[in-house]
Design a protein around this nucleic acid. Structure first.
Length: 296
DNA sequence: CAACGTACCTGCTCGC
DNA sequence: TGCGAGCAGGTACGTT
């Protein structure tokens, strides 16, 4: 699930364990995740220091002292378990527990660090992947070339949304999920943002711009609520789904703030709205929305 | 080119 | 209790 807030939560959890430390051991338990690991993966990582850990959209980027960057994507079910030298164990942003915290069946990569921390990548569905690219080529590498704007960055505005969506007849839901336009939103936060902006998920994306490509009030509203919902979710430590059991108080809590996602049949929570949350399927994925307060 | 659908995986939940 | 169908946060690639 990990969408931007969850990935940012993971980044913040990994940062103290990784940045400034050197990899003393790197072990792959299989040759691939969704894609094969790059050639000599372990050898290229081992012995390097992590000089920075950043995030681009839903990707984590660890800058290595070798001049390469380790790119990591969590797919749908990826997580990192961090074992600290004092015996503590945390799974930052542990959004996919399914009652299996500590479950090691799908441990695919083990990173041991010079500070005594052990970081283990676990991914039941193996939709995640890792890659190594020269840091100098990050902007143009296949993962990031053509990627859209960062929704928590300065670029997001009504003007930008209008320019990106201008003339598009594709549904708003699909346009917001298109990582080439805005990068980092996923199914949950798109549903939540559309609800907050009172926009119908099937409305054509182009309705957020006038004939000249200037933003309508809807575009400005959408830009504002995208920033709001992501900021709130990051502050809450992201969302934790499935059978989350609170253990250390550090994992995500934003799922309690969902207004429409996974709430089919429940009353709309918008102030004064008497509508009911509906579910529809768009490009094969569930959309949750209130047809009463999201007219278009 | 844009806009779809499909594929990639495992595991959980639901209805029978 | 078992079993199949349907569903799940992701992206890449094929076909229209």
């Amino acid at each position: 699930m990990p969408e931007l807030p969850e990935v940012e939560t993971v980044r913040r959890g990994l940062e103290p364990a990784m940045v400034g430390a050197r990899f003393t051991e790197v072990v792959l338990n299989r040759p691939n995740l969704r894609f094969p690991f790059p050639a000599r993966f372990a050898a290229r990582v081992k012995g390097r220091e992590v000089t920075a850990l950043s995030r681009r959209a839903k990707y984590l980027v660890a800058e290595l002292s070798s001049g390469e960057a380790l790119i990591m994507h969590l797919g749908m079910s990826g997580r990192f378990d961090v074992h600290l030298p004092d015996g503590r164990h945390v799974s930052p942003g542990d959004f996919y527990l399914e009652g299996a915290q500590g479950q090691s069946k799908h441990d695919h990569v083990r990173f041991d660090l010079s500070n005594g921390a052990r970081v283990v990548y676990n991914d039941a569905r193996r939709f995640g992947f890792m890659d190594l690219v020269p840091s100098a080529d990050l902007a143009t590498c296949r993962h990031f070339a053509g990627m859209g704007i960062e929704p928590l960055g300065n670029e997001l505005s009504g003007e930008t949304i209008a320019r990106l969506f201008w003339g598009k007849r594709t549904p708003l839901k699909a346009a917001l999920l298109d990582q080439r336009l805005i990068a980092g939103l996923g199914n949950i936060y798109v549903c939540e943002a559309l609800h907050r902006a009172r926009l119908h998920p099937e409305a054509p994306a182009g309705t957020l711009a006038d004939v000249a490509g200037r933003p309508t009030a809807k575009a400005k509203r959408l830009a504002t609520v995208i920033r709001d919902v992501l900021t709130e979710a990051v502050a809450a430590g992201g969302s934790t789904l499935r059978d989350y059991v609170h253990t250390d108080g550090s994992a995500g809590a934003f799922q309690h703030a969902f207004r429409v996602y996974d709430r089919e049949g429940l009353a709309c929570t918008a102030k004064g709205c008497r509508g009911v949350v509906r579910r529809l399927v768009q490009s094969g994925r569930s959309t949750f929305f209130c047809e009463t307060c999201q007219p278009g």
